[in-house]
Design a binder for these strands. Structure first.
Lengths: 237, 237
DNA sequence: GACAATTAAATGTCTGACAATTGGAAAGAT
DNA sequence: ATCTTTCCAATTGTCAGACATTTAATTGTC
């Protein structure tokens, strides 16, 4: 066994391994910090640092008080999607990924959902799509416009009825938001974008995956064009 | 501003926000723990818990010694892929996702890569694919066989030459490993799987995305069949 | 100039204490 | 007997001060 880099890291690794292996199930309560300190023969502070690391990864939550302690978290899809989206956003921003690359990834992955979405969507999905596109049509600032756009695409992905797919695509879709927020949408730009989204909804309603893929390509082209225009204008001034 | 749940959480949130906003760039050094404790008017222990949280998310690394301290991490694609794969694996295991759902997500996403991979692959990619399939052909245990299979598919995705795509797919591909590890591959099973992978490589070489998608469908069917057989055998005994 | 010893700065850890929170138990009122 | 209130114990959250360990710069020596 190689010497551990630090004690607290060692402890968090041991506990997270036990969670991953299923020895500690969701809802289980870990021993109290004092007990863990005894078990690992270290101070409470060291145990706490280990627990904070696990809490940062959403593996545990802590509750104070009499029947409190550290409890293994359930790791729901909803929470995982949120984390994944945030992490993807950070990754793109810190690596200065250009719009084309991110858009290519996003629309390529969305196109992959065409068949499943057409096959599996139900009334609720169509209602969610309609709601999102309606909001895009209302007067709002660019950030909200992009947020509604993102909601539309998330609803589209969810229509596949595959939570794992939704999880993976959430990162690709939502991480585009900061890049899209650099675009200033003129009135006629919005109209064009909204028209494309209505076409998307129509293709889904008509269960026509080929049309859906076609619209997605057009949408990628339109977005890229708008982005370039915004960038050039910014450079020009 | 609503009252914060805990001081250390507040601190880690503030710092991570500054990193996300770009105020703190990769490589920047944070103030020492003692200085941070002064700034936030709290004890060193509280600051340390906040820093551990950030370290758990790979946002910072710490170095001891004279010119040590906490430094903002670069968040490379390689590191992000590793984290994403681990997180996806955990998500699938903790939610007892069934094989079909995970496989549907994975193969749907892989099919999306067909066009780009065919268009952009180069000699290195083909060499990586050949290497992986050769390893699958060597005698090895089932776990290694699956690992080589995973490596093959990662190389296939990388052939798209889009790092964002590679990042997103890494989770989908690698998270399947534990499920695939439940399969026991008989000799003739391996031969069939290897044949399908050689066909994949061939389709890529011939830059035929349609053939590629076809093989992927066959591969999903084959894997699912093997998984069901393994499961039924386990139930029978 | 090269090498060794010293030193300073920083994280990692320990100890002990107190504050804040929470659930349950005991006590009291009705 | 039941409800309410009070108190208590367990547990996390935080603080303060100390020492150990690591690392790089500095100084001293040859």
């Amino acid at each position: 066994m190689p010497a551990s880099k630090s004690l607290s890291l060692d402890i968090s690794d041991q506990i997270s391994e036990r969670i991953a292996k299923g020895e500690l199930m969701a809802g289980d309560r870990l021993p109290s910090e004092a007990e863990l300190a005894q078990q690992f023969d270290c101070s409470r502070g060291t145990v706490r640092e280990a627990l904070k690391r696990l809490a940062a990864r959403n593996l545990i939550r802590t509750r104070r008080g009499h029947a409190g302690g550290a409890f293994v978290n359930a790791l729901t899809f909803a929470a995982a999607i949120e984390d994944h989206a945030a992490q993807s956003t950070l990754l793109l921003s810190m690596n200065a990924v250009d719009f084309e690359t991110a858009a290519e990834a996003r629309f390529t992955l969305e196109a992959a959902c065409a068949d499943l979405a057409c096959a599996n969507h139900d009334r609720k999905d169509m209602a969610a799509l309609k709601k999102a596109v309606d909001r895009m049509s209302q007067p709002c600032d660019d950030v909200d416009f992009c947020a509604h756009e993102t909601a539309f695409h998330c609803a589209y992905v969810d229509a596949c009825k595959n939570p794992v797919l939704s999880y993976h695509l959430a990162g690709a879709v939502q991480a585009m938001a900061p890049l899209m927020n650099m675009i200033t949408f003129a009135e006629r730009d919005r109209e064009a974008i909204i028209r494309l989204h209505r076409r998307m909804a129509g293709a889904l309603q008509g269960r026509s995956p080929n049309e859906l893929r076609h619209v997605l390509r057009d949408l990628e082209a339109a977005m890229t064009l708008l982005f370039h225009r915004a960038r050039d204008r910014r450079r020009g001034t």
